[in-house]
């Protein structure tokens, strides 16, 4: 558990971060460090330099944004849990943050780090997919906004350029009569998601589902939307039978990971089970 040597930088502005990324192609940004440092301690990752963004202004804070919420990239899970704005507007984010890792991880891990690292079993990629979030990033060519549906590309691979840093993640104000939930089956050893399902369900005036975004993490190489389930739900009454039938489609077409705790078949099954649970809870909240 002894990493190899590295250079250490502590920039004091986003521009400096970008410049350091350009000058150090083998460098890595470090925020909470609880994904990066274990890999370095096992010498599975050996970045030549660490760029510590802990003191870069403008990357933290949770603010209300036109009724929605904007999270600074360096917002920790603990800050999300304790934020009044989040509890009022997007309680599912606090719910999900509360089941990430453990207290120590929640005090250090950041929402920006979570999505930039793109671990297939991280919780927030699914949550943000369900929330249709937008990711702001800054690089050598300035700022841009990436829609969350275009953000996750592959295992540990996002559409961020190597010299870009995530600065903010924003979620628009949810439509009226929208309920959200995050249901997770935790890995008994690591605490990551064997399967985690985030559901955002909006009901129309007729009581039927008018919109749904369902996202699944842990089961496959990246967090993905359950398009089949979404289509099956929209326009339907959110009865237990309809939800169950829609949830059966959640595993269709997915590639599943496997390990000694959960093989592919079991993960596929859990995907369907937890999709059903997440949707039912979201519906209950939309109706309540």
């Amino acid at each position: 558990m002894y990493p190899s040597a590295f250079d250490y930088f502590r920039p004091s502005s986003v521009d400096e971060v970008v410049k350091l990324l350009q000058e150090n192609p083998e460098g890595k940004i470090i925020a909470g460090g609880h994904s990066l440092l274990p890999m370095m301690k096992l010498r599975l990752a050996a970045p030549a330099s660490l760029i510590d963004i802990g003191r870069v202004p403008g990357l933290d804070g949770i603010r209300s944004d036109n009724g929605g919420v904007a999270f600074g990239a360096r917002t920790t899970y603990d800050q999300i849990i304790k934020s009044d704005v989040v509890q009022q507007t997007l309680p599912v984010a606090a719910e999900a943050a509360g089941v990430v890792g453990d207290i120590q991880v929640r005090n250090r891990g950041t929402i920006g780090g979570s999505i930039a690292h793109a671990d297939p079993a991280a919780d927030f990629p699914a949550v943000l997919l369900a929330l249709d979030a937008k990711v702001n990033a800054t690089g050598p060519n300035g700022q841009r906004t990436i829609g969350i549906d275009d953000f996750f590309v592959d295992m540990f691979t996002t559409s961020l350029e190597p010299e870009e840093i995530v600065t903010e993640i924003s979620v628009a104000k949810p439509a009226a009569k929208t309920g959200m939930a995050y249901e997770k089956f935790s890995h008994p050893a690591s605490g990551y998601a064997i399967v985690g399902v985030a559901a955002s369900v909006t009901l129309g005036n007729d009581g039927n589902v008018s919109a749904a975004r369902i996202a699944i993490t842990g089961a496959g190489p990246i967090a993905v939307r359950a398009n089949g389930t979404e289509s099956a739900l929209v326009g339907q009454a959110p009865t237990a039978e309809n939800v169950k039938a829609a949830a059966q489609k959640a595993s269709d077409g997915m590639t599943f990971l496997g390990d000694i705790h959960a093989g592919e078949e079991y993960r596929a099954h859990l995907t369907r089970v937890f999709t059903e649970r997440a949707i039912n809870k979201a519906v209950e909240r939309a109706q309540g």
Partner: peptide, 23 residues
């Protein structure tokens, strides 16, 4: 219900860290 040391047929300890060995 939680702990198991797992070796594969090549003698590799698959449950080689606390990421996979569930205490």
């Amino acid at each position: 219900v939680l702990e198991t040391a797992v070796y594969d047929d090549n003698g590799q300890l698959l449950s080689g860290t606390m990421m996979d060995y569930a205490i």
